[in-house]
Computed example of a mutant assay.
Amino acid sequence: MTVRLVVRTLSELCITAGALIVLFVAYVMYWTGIQADDAVAGQLDTLQREWVAAPADPDPDPDPAPAPPARRPYAAGRGIAVMYVPRLGDDWEWPVLQGTGTGVLKKGLGHYAGTARLGATGNFSVAGHRRTYGDPFKDFPRLRPGDAVVLTDGTTWFTYRIDRAPYRTVPTDVAVIDPVPRKSGFHGPGRYLTLTTCDPEWGSSHRLIVWGHLDATQPVTAGRPQALDRP
């Protein structure tokens, strides 16, 4: 009798544990994506309304040469730009917010505090989830040298070009977002871009990195840049 009771109890516990695991997987794979879709759409809408109401300051130096220091700091948690990566899909469009905290990365991509402003001299560095919360960088390993990463702040289009295939490193390697990252192949000050995400796909033991340089800029009034066409 006692053995039968123990077996029945263990069976019930296993069934309960299995149900909880299934619910957790469903939450991670689906519910976080639904949450992200709503949050991302809200951020994109907010940015568009802000740009219509009060356009961003135009880039004082539209050529890809060193720009003067920015006059206004980015506000923590607020949207600062929209990013497009044609290699990752025609409809790949994500807001970039200031900061890389957990709450920020649930709403979009995050700009590392302390790195350069968009289009400025230095290293404009951005983090994004590989999986969960919309999977923005799920296909990160597909990025290749020459791929375009296009951003806009509502006034100017900034087209960066990736310079090397994704580089794998550990989370403590914070030098990847230095103004001139040592392993990037860059040898002096410039207007650079760094994108970071987790690796492996469903883990976080490592990071994948790509570096790029500012290739061109143009005012939004001139229309969409050709770089937005898929490669």
Rank of each mutant, 00 (worst) to 15 (best):
D61Y: 09
A227D: 00
C14F: 15
R8T: 08
T115H: 09
R4A: 08
V85T: 09
L105T: 14
A36W: 05
I15K: 15
M83L: 02
F124M: 12
G146E: 00
P171G: 10
Y84C: 10
D153M: 01
P145Q: 11
F137V: 02
D199C: 07
T217R: 02
P69A: 09
G122Y: 01
G185W: 08
G122C: 04
P66C: 06
R142P: 00
H213C: 02
R49H: 07
G33M: 12
R117M: 11
Y192V: 14
A165Y: 10
V25D: 08
T169A: 02
F158N: 04
D57C: 10
Q48T: 15
G119R: 04
Y167E: 15
L23I: 12
G188K: 09
V85K: 04
W202S: 08
D57H: 07
G42Q: 01
G212Q: 07
G188D: 07
L23R: 14
Y74E: 12
Y27N: 04
G110W: 12
V85H: 01
M1Q: 11
K106V: 04
A17H: 05
A148C: 10
Q35Y: 11
V22Y: 12
L44K: 02
A54F: 09
H111V: 00
T102G: 09
P69T: 10
T159L: 02
P145A: 14
D91T: 13
I34N: 07
S204Y: 09
C198E: 04
W202M: 09
A75F: 14
R142H: 00
T197L: 02
F137G: 03
G77S: 07
D163N: 10
A116T: 08
G42Y: 01
E50C: 03
T115Y: 08
L13T: 03
S184A: 01
